[in-house]
């Protein structure tokens, strides 16, 4: 098997192992009902993580994701109060997300600044805007929200695919297409693999970098839309530290933080592993939420160490 699939295989193995463990411990765990719920409950994290996958594949990082989710939520809620249709508000916010992401990408490349610091500025800036818009939780009361909450596709067994899960899967399909079947996607891997070489091979670094962060912004904003519809409200603190969960999902999904290696599909499983851990601990009943974070942390740690060993197998250049 091609070595590049090893991290993804490890991710899927962990997911299946956790799922089967759950099934052995609790009745009714190993079912499409649980699976469907995990997909729906974690849809916004996974959507945000898909965008972050592009950024991390290129060797960058995006810390503005959580604040973007919060800002999209409060704006949608306020626009709803002003009488906008949620879909129109969503379209506006997604456009904003793309533009803001593109701006971040431009600053990163044009000024040659670390993505960490540029998107950290974005984290503060966007969160500040949230508080400008509103200081309290604002409900979204529109018929469309009810429609969104009730729409579902039945799965075999008792499970259902809810709207959030459907949006997430559709956006995943789009991301897989962009990453693996376009020149742009190929360039993203090249920049993450070796930026200087990519430049010398004729890759347009600026256009690609702007595109990468624009995609990041698109997926963050989409995650914000899904989160707002899922909770049917906007809250200025929503999505705090969510960027870190998204990064964790990407890394658990087999993408190397150093960039250049990984697959978008892995992020789906990475996000689901995080969801599965919380579901398992909730099923257990007597363990508190501290254990969700502790086990996520331990697993993340184990994966990073695993990657460290896998990455050396890609580094096969001559020893001279």
């Amino acid at each position: 098997m091609n070595k590049k699939y090893l991290p993804l295989a490890a991710t899927i193995a962990v997911f299946v192992a956790l799922f089967v463990t759950g099934g052995a411990m609790y009745n009714n765990f190993l079912s499409t009902l649980v699976l469907g719920n995990i997909l729906a409950d974690n849809a916004f994290i996974i959507i945000a993580a898909i965008g972050a996958t592009f950024v991390i594949l290129s060797g960058g990082i995006d810390l503005s994701i959580g604040s973007m989710i919060g800002l999209v939520g409060v704006c949608m809620a306020v626009l709803d109060r002003m009488g906008w249709h949620p879909l129109a508000a969503a379209a506006l916010m997604i456009c904003f997300g793309i533009l803001y992401g593109a701006l971040q990408g431009f600053i990163i490349d044009f000024c040659d600044i670390q993505p960490f610091i540029v998107t950290l500025a974005g984290l503060f800036l966007l969160r500040g805007l949230c508080f400008m818009v509103t200081l309290e939780s604002v409900p979204i009361r529109h018929d469309f929200v009810d429609l969104y909450a009730s729409a579902k596709i039945p799965l075999p067994g008792r499970g259902v695919l809810r709207s959030s899960a459907i949006v997430m899967l559709a956006s995943l399909a789009l991301a897989i297409f962009i990453a693996h079947f376009t020149r742009f996607g190929n360039s993203v891997y090249a920049i993450g693999g070796d930026k200087e070489s990519a430049r010398l091979m004729g890759v347009n670094i600026r256009r690609t970098t702007v595109g990468i962060y624009a995609i990041g912004g698109f997926y963050s904003a989409l995650a914000g839309v899904v989160y707002a519809l899922y909770t049917s409200s906007g809250y200025p603190l929503a999505g705090s530290t969510l960027e870190l969960s998204a990064i964790a999902a990407v890394v658990l999904g087999g993408t190397l933080l150093t960039g250049g290696v990984g697959m978008v599909a892995g992020t789906l499983f990475g996000g689901m592993i995080l969801g599965l851990i919380s579901t398992l601990i909730i099923f257990h009943g007597s363990l508190n939420s501290a254990w969700i974070l502790i086990s996520s942390g331990v697993l993340l740690f184990a994966f990073i160490v695993l990657h460290r060993f896998l990455v050396s197998s890609f580094d096969l250049r001559g020893t001279s």
Binding site: F181, R183, A190, G193, S197, A198, V203, R207, F314, D315
Partner: peptide, 24 residues
Amino acid sequence: NLIPAMSVTKNLALGPSDGAFGII
């Protein structure tokens, strides 16, 4: 100047191209 982790095909497909979202 190549990207070691990418396949030969993908390396050779890199370069100045027609349109940023050109489908491969």
